[in-house]
Nucleic acid binder design. Structure first.
Lengths: 343, 343
DNA sequence: ACAGATATCCAAAGCGCTTTGGGAGGTTTC
DNA sequence: GAAACCTCCCAAAGCGCTTTGGATATCTGT
């Protein structure tokens, strides 16, 4: 018993115009009438036909999402978590996604197709790289978009939500330095990604201020899997002058790192300190590690939700959001950080 | 310079009807006229407005996807891979997804909402459990759907694409038995999932035929992560009468298992044999393992693409697919399987 | 009490496509 | 040569919503 606007209007003895306006919050409707309409909607279970709305308004109520298929990114656990946030928010407003898989070298064409298709009102962008070409492409396509993260170099005036990676790892490093650590290593994400670059910068800056030099043999880049964390940590531990403290770009990496440390017979927080960035993955809580992890925390899912909200707000022309948001990451000290051994 | 049907028709000196028919492959159009239309489409870059098509045809051109958000499933690497296949196929036909996140206990309501909303033509279902209630729900909602996997128990007449898990693990076990192994362990997926249950059954059946009994202390269930594979294998190796061969439900699990084996100082293929199920994850190829892995192979991505194709075919009422497909998994013997040690 | 606001509501015109119901002209059929 | 068919095309009626451009009625202030 799916009703449509016309039937609903008839049932109420009103015109479609008035009912439509009552539903869409226009002011020229008597409060009492509006209440009646809302009541009837509840009673009949009326739901507006989206296709008709789209045709009439020109808004597709959907946001485009280019999903890289080549590398391991798409199957990445972090991506899934972020997507969950996006989806959660989108579903509240009855928005859809158009997921376009694309090989990295085909991205530009994919974006063009997406924009031209008219199937999406806005586009979302992530996994920013240094000098990322996609920003200029999207600007030229004149389709609204919001970026998760920031590029490095290139145009600066585009909407984004990012966390202050430099600051987060600067703070983390500072803590370690104050605890007396001098050789601090970094198990980072892929080296071409902007957040990796910034995290390294944060580390370097803090070292600089302390009068220390970053030793590049103490930085490892890789995809953020448990396995890579394990291997990177092993490599560090085998070095002649092994680090006494390690920064991890993800709790997933930390998982592997911890295993390597344990296997080497070392005790976390005593023999070696560990700080990881925590994306708040529901299945991997830093407080549940055998030794609870000191972390820089910022929820990936929240970022996803926020970006969805901004995208949708922009399309519906409601809500007011800052163009650029730089979220701080919270430094949470737990048991995995301690004073330098033998001091 | 976006043209619409009307303008295109005018430009050609034809009626909208004829142009529409030419484009949609109706027979009552002269071949020559059709060619002219197609040519004009190319020249003008005409693209039909989807919203209008939807309104006129009643088809939303989108498929619904309920994404579990509670457990680790959504961030699961296997899910991402499957999704890639779905998306790849969908984009070919300009189909969308409506991703609905849902807590497991809210699934029924989510499905109802999805079906009632009218913005999906069909629904896709995965992560089947034993006696899965979702099948009946979807049937009662009378919305087309295709299942990835099969339930166990409950109604049998529903469309699915599944791989023959029982058979795959039966074959794998058979191979191990022929090689002389008697104590064969299984590192399985979550115990409530249908495929896990079937794989265990395959193992058990082969053992039975060989006159052996399945020792339930040799079966571990867990989410399919590297970490869990590691732990499960460790547990097996610590047992007094450790297995000489192990079956893994995923190459991801095998990754951890291999680590545990190496760590124990054992040699794969000599001291202990390993067979894993290979979902053909692009980032994890069994032939690249330090000891190339014997596997039962079936591409998850291909399954995703197939399901998308069937769903879309059903909506568009074209193409003819079998209702139920049970794909065989290919047994590929590599170096990780060898004769029982000390025989 | 009357011109000008103000508050509510409505009829009708799209949005861009598909589809129904013909209809003109040319071919067959008997 | 008339009746019966094809073949190919068209006009117009929707699909279900939003929005424009009034109407009508009720208030204002003077």
């Amino acid at each position: 018993m799916a009703v449509n606007l016309k039937q609903l209007a008839e049932l109420l003895g009103l015109s479609q115009t008035t009912v439509s306006r009552a539903l869409n919050g226009y002011p020229e409707v008597n409060a009492h009438t509006r209440r009646r309409v809302l009541e009837a909607v509840r009673a009949t279970g009326y739901r507006p036909n989206r296709a008709a709305q789209r045709l009439a308004t020109g808004k597709a109520r959907s946001i485009g999402l280019v999903m890289p298929i080549a590398s391991g990114i798409d199957s990445d656990i972090h991506f899934g978590e972020f997507l969950a946030g996006l989806a959660e928010e989108a579903v509240k407003h009855d928005f859809h996604f158009v997921i376009n898989p694309s090989a990295p070298d085909d991205e530009e064409a994919t974006f063009r197709r997406l924009a031209a298709s008219g199937n999406v009102d806005a586009v979302f962008l992530a996994y920013m790289r240094a000098n990322d070409p996609r920003i200029s492409i999207l600007k030229s396509l004149s389709i609204p978009f919001v970026v998760h993260g920031r590029s490095i170099g290139g145009p600066r005036d585009y909407p984004f939500v990012d966390i202050d990676n430099t600051r987060a790892f600067y703070d983390a490093t500072k803590l370690l330095l104050q605890l007396g650590h001098q050789r601090i290593a970094l198990i980072n994400g892929p080296d071409y990604l902007a957040f990796s670059i910034r995290r390294r910068k944060g580390l370097m800056r803090a070292l600089d201020e302390w009068g220390l030099r970053l030793d590049d043999s103490l930085v490892q880049y890789s995809e953020m899997t448990d396995e890579h964390g394990y291997r990177s940590m092993q490599r560090f531990l085998q070095q002649p002058d092994a680090p006494t403290a390690v920064l991890c770009s993800s709790t997933v990496l930390a998982l592997g790192a911890v295993r390597a440390i344990n296997q080497a017979g070392l005790v976390i927080g005593r023999d070696i300190s560990l700080i990881a960035h925590d994306d708040v993955l529901p299945m991997l809580k830093p407080e549940n590690f055998s030794v609870p992890l000191t972390t820089t925390r910022s929820s990936l899912r929240a970022a996803g939700a926020r970006i969805a909200a901004r995208l949708i707000g922009g399309i519906l022309e409601q809500g007011d959001y800052p163009e650029q948001e730089l979220w701080p990451a919270e430094l949470i000290v737990r048991a995995s950080t301690g004073a330098t051994p033998g001091r």
